[in-house]
Nucleic acid binder design. Sequence first.
DNA 1: ACTTGGTTACTGACCTGTAAGCAAGTGTGG
DNA 2: CCACACTTGCTTACAGGTCAGTAACCAAGT
Lengths: 219, 219
Amino acid sequence: MISAMATSGTQRAKKPREETARRREDILRAAMSTFGTRGYKNGSLAEIADQVGMTHAGVLHHFGSKDQLLLEMLDYRDRTDVEHLADQHIPGGLDLFRHLVTTARRNAERPGIVQTFAVLSADSVTDDHPAKEYFRGRYTQLRSDIREALHEVCDPDDPPDDAMVDAAAAAVLAVMDGLQVQWLLDPEAVDLAYASAFAIEAVLTAAVGGRRRRRMLEY
Amino acid sequence: MISAMATSGTQRAKKPREETARRREDILRAAMSTFGTRGYKNGSLAEIADQVGMTHAGVLHHFGSKDQLLLEMLDYRDRTDVEHLADQHIPGGLDLFRHLVTTARRNAERPGIVQTFAVLSADSVTDDHPAKEYFRGRYTQLRSDIREALHEVCDPDDPPDDAMVDAAAAAVLAVMDGLQVQWLLDPEAVDLAYASAFAIEAVLTAAVGGRRRRRMLEY
DNA sequence: ACTTGGTTACTGACCTGTAAGCAAGTGTGG
DNA sequence: CCACACTTGCTTACAGGTCAGTAACCAAGT
């Protein structure tokens, strides 16, 4: 699954010892778990180190600081998250929205990752949070992707209102995030996949008006 | 030891009870500010105490523990938040949605309170968080209010699908919350009031189908 | 011999909660 | 209307704990 990327004839000389890279990934995965279940400030390096059988100083040996570990963890998650996409790149147009619904469905099976991002993204709005820039940039990028997809869906001769497209793009991400929080608090009470699909379709319908009708997305 | 600041003069001290209640409220407001800007775990009693000119032990004298302070703060916010409603009670039917849009507009003017709730609600999904039960109950109640309002809006002879109403109720809260996070991270990029109104109307339209049309809500 | 991946041990911040004390204000009996 | 015990609203001091980060060291593998 992952082994493929060790390819390329240029063996990178002495630098990366394979075992070390694996160790670092273990730590990053442990960090996801700990920061997800306890929050950033509250999650300790010792707890992360414990999960991979070393001391907290060992973790710092690899990552230098807790802040750096968080940032590398977010980066790692981004890299591995697109791995499952065959073409390694997020689709556009209507397919983007289908992709988002699929993601919601997938997320309903992995509360751990969902919690990590739900907790950290809200955490990041606090003063001087090390991941604030990461999340700001992330949302900017995602909103832009969705705006573009919305324009693609629309008839170019009858372009939608810009302000509305902006609102719709933000709203799509917002429902997904907000539903995750409610679902994490009370999984019985919220059907994450269905509610996400419903809301995304609702926003989509409202944004593109009458041009495209009913059942654009499947559930 | 301490030269008391009992600097006499016209030292009015008639009603210690009332004065005490005011002191407690000062502390609760300071707690909102600190927990909002730093998160729960990260915000210290010392910082809260500082804002009202006392030591952290003074705060504990009034509230017993940090957890208790958080809970009372949430309670205080709930009490004071409905004060501005003339009839002191949340409306039903279409008025509920108008009220939500109004709230979003109001929120765009008070980032402090918005941040407090955005941060704490996501914080609360972490393990053993003292406010988890508070937020779970809060969402349960709000979803129920919205479900009811949705039913009121619909023609009783043609009732909407239950699963859809559930999804719509959760989605309405979710967009509002999610938009707040994006807005806090990047106020320039997100129009909180407009996007909230747009998304709420979109969900409403999708949920009640053709029975009610266009411009149910004003912006 | 040098680098790498750790370890132990320690430091210095901070943080919550507790205890004891104190000054100013309150209530009551006389 | 006053004396005096009690209560209230804090304070300082400290106990006990957690945590990030640093330094010095060591055991391999190359």
